[in-house]
Design a protein around this nucleic acid. Structure first.
Length: 661
RNA sequence: GCCGGGGUAGCUCAGUGGCAGAGCAACCGCCUUGUAAGCGGUAGGUCGUGGGUUCAAUCCCCACCCUCGGCUCCA
């Protein structure tokens, strides 16, 4: 026996080597480094594999300690808390079945089936939380063991969902969710918390439940088993869990802040638009204040498109069914369309997309290669029958307007055209204050698409190449393409880090085929153009909604419905205030005046709540000196500002974001 | 579409099987104000819609519409 068998050496992330008695665990290691580290430790990474703190370390291992305040650590906490949730539910609701309970962003969930199709109420969440706290207080260890699939099936004989997972793992057709739940086929891993509760799980977990406790159960929701709409619907409980009381409190505070900037709430508060019940679900009307912002967005869009070589077209909201038969929409997109209108001379549908109509414009006469690329642009209003449960304010709506364009080009032009489109999209998005993007390449879903493999391959390659040419990182979403072709979707991140899908660039070899589109090439041959679909805002409604949340209602000055409000200190200054207003109107600004029949403080407050960029206050001094008091949004008050100085400041503020590249 | 909440004044929300409530906003007066809520008064509701139960329904039951949180699906 070697003389050093009583010790092991492990290597730490900083490449230092530490000697420990043989049989030492990750927890021992953490303790040897420091008491605070041991307290914060929730798991280890041994040779790149996450494992429990209690696992004995091998000699020569590369080890790092996962602490609760890291992303990986919180993940472990959340997953462990999910087990505690399951235990509480199983104890409180006799006969309940539990299925899966992963950690997710900011928290975790667990899906259950309650006996007799019972559902959880909000009151249940309170009692479940209490039971969970008892389990935490009981300091139950998480004890890992591994067993054969057969033994595991015996352990979970009363848990059909667990058995299904074990069987899938055994058969080797486990998906990533299953693998997280059960480990591998030869060694199904389980974690036992007490005599009565054991769960299938790959781990790792915290050493014991006492390490948990900073959690909150958030909501109950229905969720299909394995995401299958035809399958059973389970009861899902969502929770959030954090490493400390303060981290939990901060998270709850962030949620409150996010709620305050909810576009649906802001739309009401700021009188921008509404969804009258009489109109039906998912249909909005724009009020004057929302309308002016929308107009400014549209003006900007039109200006950019005009400069970008686009031709403006207009098409109707309805079309004969034949059009959508030709385009394939009735075959592949019927569920997303409003129901047909039967008329004496045929059947009509509200259009769900503008592309077929743009194809008709292209086809109306013979085209030459000299005309290509032909870029047709329209702010086209479409109607889509989104399922009732999916509607969500402006972000998921049934009638909306796309800043839609279809670019007809030759195969040779395609790659350049896509590349310059990417520049165009990003430049427009940046003007609206978005700087953080995620790109997604969506590829073919064979069951829900038209066209040959070669054509799809070509189009997908062209999109991929454009992304690579720009050096952009992207993810691939297999099967997410439109039925007519692959696409690049661009998600933006808003001011508080949430992702929204807005812009899309789609490649289409199929509609030109279906509509028999042609151009005369240089060699006098008839050739088929390629069609690119693209929308920058995506939909004006969605973009507006995202913009509203991004800015929390505080639109940049160039977009603000009211840019300047003028307040007279007292009635005696009203006349001067009106002159200031007039001067600003002549300067082309959107300005108004609130007369002095309320306290100044109250009028200031009202104006601030409206998020007006500049509130001007004028009193005796200002009347005497032709000055104004400037109270800017988010800045400090300045008194005695010369009117011309303010005009310069305003012009700079507006011009900065307004000028077109 | 599915599961679970909800719909009461312009907004935010109380409330009850027996005449419908508050705060803010609105309107009218007073106050004439120097940077985020001055005072008093008035008005405002088919209690989402339609059916049912009941002597009596905003309240209990059913259906539908709209909406919220999810699932599924998507710009």
């Amino acid at each position: 026996m070697p003389s050093d068998s009583s010790v092991i050496k492990v290597r730490l992330p900083d490449d230092s080597v530490r000697e420990l008695p043989t049989g030492s665990t990750g927890l021992d290691l953490a303790q040897s480094i420091g008491k605070r580290l041991a307290q914060a430790a929730v798991a280890t990474v041994v040779n790149g594999v996450e494992s429990d703190l209690g696992v004995a370390l091998a000699d020569g291992a590369q080890v790092s300690i996962v602490t609760a305040d890291s992303d990986a650590g919180r993940h472990v906490l959340r997953h462990s808390t999910a087990h505690v949730l399951a235990q509480a539910v199983v104890q409180l609701f006799e006969g309940s079945k539990f299925s899966i309970g992963p950690a997710i962003e900011d928290g975790f969930y667990y899906d259950f089936e309650l006996p007799n199709n019972k559902t959880f109420s909000d009151a249940d969440l309170v009692s479940i939380t209490e039971r969970m706290q008892q389990i935490v207080a009981a300091d139950q260890p998480f004890v890992r063991s591994e067993m054969s699939a057969d033994d595991a099936l015996k352990v979970f004989k009363d848990q059909p969902y667990k058995c299904e997972i074990i069987q899938r793992v055994t058969k080797g057709d486990a998906d990533s969710v299953d693998a997280l739940e059960a480990g591998s086929a030869d060694a199904v891993s389980v974690y036992r918390n007490s005599e009565s509760f054991v769960d299938l799980c790959r781990g790792p977990h915290v050493p014991s439940t006492s390490r948990l406790g900073h959690f909150a159960l958030m909501k109950v929701a229905g969720a299909y088993w394995r995401g299958n709409e035809k399958g059973p619907m389970l009861q899902r409980i969502y929770g959030t869990a954090w490493e400390s009381k303060s981290a939990l409190a901060e998270h709850l505070h962030r949620l409150e802040e996010a709620e305050k900037r909810d576009h649906r709430r802001l739309a009401v508060e700021m009188d921008l638009l509404s969804f009258p019940q009489e109109l039906g679900g998912g249909l909005a009307v724009w009020h004057p204040k929302g309308g002016i912002v929308r107009k400014l967005m549209e003006d900007y869009s039109r200006e950019r498109h005009q400069n970008g070589g686009y031709k403006f077209v207009f098409t109707p909201h309805l079309a004969n069914a034949h059009l959508f038969e030709t385009s394939g929409h009735l075959q592949f997109y019927k569920d997303g369309m409003y129901p047909p209108m039967e008329m004496d001379n045929g059947t009509y549908y509200p259009k769900p997309m503008n592309c077929p109509m743009h194809c008709l414009i292209y086809r109306d006469r013979q085209r030459s290669y000299r005309e290509l690329p032909l870029r047709l642009f329209e702010l086209g209003t479409v109607y889509r029958y989104e399922r009732a449960g999916t509607l969500h304010g402006l972000l998921r709506i049934r009638g909306f307007t796309q800043d839609d364009s279809h670019i007809f080009c030759t195969e040779e032009q395609m790659a350049d055209e896509i590349a310059s489109l990417l520049d165009f999209v990003l430049s427009v998005l940046r003007r609206f204050g978005f700087n953080d993007f995620d790109f997604k390449l969506s590829t073919r879903n064979v069951d829900k698409s038209v066209g040959s493999d070669e054509i799809w391959q070509k189009a997908t390659d062209a999109l991929r190449e454009a992304l690579n040419r720009h050096g952009l990182q992207f993810t691939v979403a297999p099967g997410d393409a439109a039925f007519y072709g692959p696409k690049i979707d661009i998600d933006v991140r808003d001011a508080i880090g949430r992702k929204w899908q807005l812009s899309t660039i789609q490649c289409d070899f199929n509609l030109p085929e279906r509509f028999g589109l042609e151009y005369i090439a240089t060699d006098n041959a008839r050739k088929r153009p390629i069609m690119l679909h693209r929308a920058l805002f995506g939909s004006i409604e969605r973009f507006f909604g995202v913009l509203l949340e991004h800015y929390g209602g505080a639109f940049p000055t160039w977009l603000a419905p009211v840019q300047v409000r003028v307040l007279a200190v007292a009635s005696a200054h009203e006349e001067y205030a009106a002159k200031v207003v007039q001067q600003l109107i002549e300067g082309g600004y959107r300005v108004d005046q609130l007369v002095a029949d309320e306290q100044l403080g109250k009028r200031i407050r009202a104006s601030k709540l409206e998020r007006i960029p500049y509130v001007l206050v004028v009193g005796d001094d200002d009347v005497a000196n032709s000055t104004v008091g400037v109270n800017p949004r988010g800045g400090d008050v300045r008194r005695d500002v010369l009117m011309n100085d303010f005009l310069r400041q305003l012009s700079a503020d507006v011009g900065e974001t307004k000028s077109v590249a």
